[in-house]
Design a binder for these strands. Structure first.
Length: 577
RNA sequence: GCGCCCGUAGCUCAAAGGAUAGAGCGACUGACUUCGGAUCAGUAGGUUGGGGGUUCGAGUCCCUCCGGGCGCACCA
């Protein structure tokens, strides 16, 4: 498998591999094994010896059975036969397999299989009943993943667009960890450079204004009122000290102070949004440590750099088909942002990471080629660097689209929305969508619909089950019976719930492979739906002690999956609402 | 002008190239004196922006047109 991560490359790489683990779903793995085994003699008979194409084992619509495979259809070309014929040969073998109660051919050549209920019951027993860890896949050896996200410049508070990146990045990190990867979540701070100088100067101007001086903000100044608050802080602490010296002398202090203050606020917002970072990287530190210069030397040695017009250029056209080559060191001797970012990525590789996932705003898409070029120039496989472009969040307020700009001070803060809509609803909303589609976030709607957000549908299922246990305990019934009679749960209703719950680890595996954290919200909504339906049709606590015990055991397992799933999203799993 | 992303129910969004394109919200009709009605059952709603192509099969891949967004710095 060349690349289990890349959404772009997976189509080709997956198409010619059969190395899908099915780590997460013992039943799906068993079915895959059965299908592959059945395929061997058929392929041999046809004289086929090449690598098998990817064969899908899917969970189809319920009426078709528990699993279906397209094996017969994808094998038509390699075997030079027709799908119906291949399907018949395969089913002849599969029908004899002890796992299945039914095997059939349908449509253009799908093979549908139903698994015997006892096998499902056995699997379901293995889910922990106490809400503890479930669905964590075995460690993936040899992979060390770095997920870099948010990385907003400390020039202003986080806005709603950052919120989307934060939710996606955090959920992705959680998902990959769950899927067995060694994952580090990191935030890169652009705490130096021209924008930082602008920032410091903005504060200095505001500071002077506080003393009645008529300094006006510059065109490229940060206009937000938070700058004035910071200036006020400085005035409170230092009085007119900075009026008595040259601006150039004051500027470093104002810059550092402002950036630190804003970064502190960003950290607080992220914490509130339940976004966790394992590490904070600083652009400034790469300059101060000499890493940037070292990296440029490194690139020179690899022949990736040339000099023109007094500046140093990286050959990004040649390396990655970029539109033009890019400057890493200006004619005035100052290195560019790109140079520092390359040094940072060099550092990531140096630290032993084998996959670098960068979550960027879609407005950075022009940046992809030059970073891929950099990876290549550093002697790395460009495929190990995976920028994910989170599409823009356009903000709607009062029925109108609002343009967002940190510099102009026109934006809706993440904090503001989180306070009004709530962390759970906000995160869930962001994680219901794929990251590559633009998203219209209607603030008013989000607020007014806070009670109708799908997140509550899922949480309610968790709370309802929790309440059942409470009721059971009140009536002197053990909510978590040690050895219930599972055989009582063999009706369609029961099995439907079990099958959905047991799909959880497979969902983790599939979503991790596709870098698609939003699959989790959809899965959980389905599981909650199946449970709500079950709940309506079946009383868990009844006069039948044995049946009660069995249903309590099932309920506990559903709750465990809901809890684990919500945890992946960073959404709380309340016992009551 | 060039490049990237997107266009799916009235709205917000799903859908490894697979079967009759699915959920939620909104609309409409119903639900057991019971463990929580933030729930459940049902109805209506679609030429997947238009047109070509590739193949056993296309919302998905290719070409083209239309519409929207975002980029095209010795800023970050």
């Amino acid at each position: 498998m060349q690349c289990g991560f890349c959404r772009i490359e997976r189509a080709t790489s997956f198409a010619f591999t059969s190395q899908i683990g099915d780590n997460g779903h013992p039943m799906r793995k068993a079915v895959r094994d059965a299908v592959m085994q059945a395929l061997v003699p058929v392929a041999q008979k046809a004289g086929f010896s090449g690598e098998l194409p990817y064969i899908a084992i899917e969970v189809p619509e319920e009426k078709f059975g528990d699993f279906s495979t397209n094996a017969a259809m994808v094998m038509t070309k390699p075997l030079k036969s027709n799908p119906r014929k291949i399907a018949e040969e395969l089913t002849a073998t599969l029908k004899g397999h002890p796992l299945f109660t039914a095997v059939g051919i349908a449509g253009p050549g799908f093979i549908n299989m139903s698994v015997k209920p006892e096998a499902w019951l056995e699997e379901c027993k293995k889910i922990p009943a106490d809400n503890s860890d479930y669905g964590t896949l075995p460690p993936v050896p040899g992979e060390k993943v770095l997920v870099e996200f948010v990385s907003a410049n400390p020039t202003g508070p986080l806005h709603i667009g950052h919120g989307r990146g934060a939710a996606v990045g955090d959920a992705l990190a959680r998902l990959l960890k769950k899927a067995g990867y060694n994952v580090t979540a990191e935030y890169y701070t652009n705490d130096t450079g021209l924008q930082m100088e602008n920032l410091g100067r903005s504060t200095l101007i505001r500071y002077k204004q506080l003393f009645g001086m008529d300094d006006a903000l510059l065109e490229n100044s940060y206009q937000g009122l938070y700058i004035r608050d910071i200036a006020q802080e400085i005035k409170d602490a230092h009085g007119d000290k900075f009026l008595k010296q040259a601006d150039a002398e004051s500027l470093p202090f104002f810059t550092t102070y402002t950036a630190d203050k804003i970064l502190d606020d960003i950290k607080e917002d992220l914490k509130k949004f339940r976004v966790n970072f394992d590490n904070w990287a600083s652009e400034k530190s790469f300059h101060e440590s000499g890493a940037v210069e070292k990296t440029i030397e490194h690139l020179k040695q690899h022949g990736a750099i040339y000099e023109k017009d007094g500046a140093l250029w990286l050959k990004t056209i040649e390396l990655a088909g970029d539109e033009k080559d890019r400057v890493v060191k200006r004619a005035n001797g100052i290195t560019t942002y790109l140079a520092a970012d390359i040094a940072y990525h060099d550092d990531k590789y140096e630290r032993g990471f084998t996959r670098l996932i960068d979550i960027w705003g879609a407005d950075h898409h022009g940046y992809v080629a030059r970073m891929k070029a950099a990876a290549k120039a550093l002697g790395k496989d460009p495929a190990s660097l995976q920028p994910l472009l989170i599409q823009i969040v356009s903000l709607k307020k009062g029925g109108e689209l609002v343009a967002m700009s940190t510099r102009s001070g026109k934006f809706t803060e993440l904090k503001e929305v989180v306070d009004e809509v709530g962390v759970d609803a906000c995160r869930f909303t962001f994680l219901t969508r794929g990251y590559d589609a633009q998203l219209e976030f209607d603030v008013d709607l989000a607020k007014s619909q806070s009670n109708e957000n799908p997140v509550y549908y899922v949480q309610y299922a968790h709370a309802r089950i929790s309440n059942i246990f409470k009721t059971a305990a009140e009536r002197g019934i053990d909510p978590f019976p040690a050895d219930p009679n599972w055989a009582l749960l063999n009706r369609e209703d029961d099995l439907r719930v079990m099958k959905k719950a047991l799909f959880f680890p497979a969902m983790v595996e599939d979503a991790a492979n596709g870098l698609a954290p939003h699959a989790t919200t959809h899965y959980l909504t389905e599981l909650a739906g199946v449970w709500h339906k079950y709940y309506t049709g079946n009383r868990v606590i009844s006069d039948d002690a044995a049946l009660t015990a069995a249903r309590l055991a099932l309920a506990a397992r559903v709750r465990t999956v809901l809890k684990n799933g919500l945890e992946l999203l960073g959404v709380s799993a309340p016992e009551k609402m």
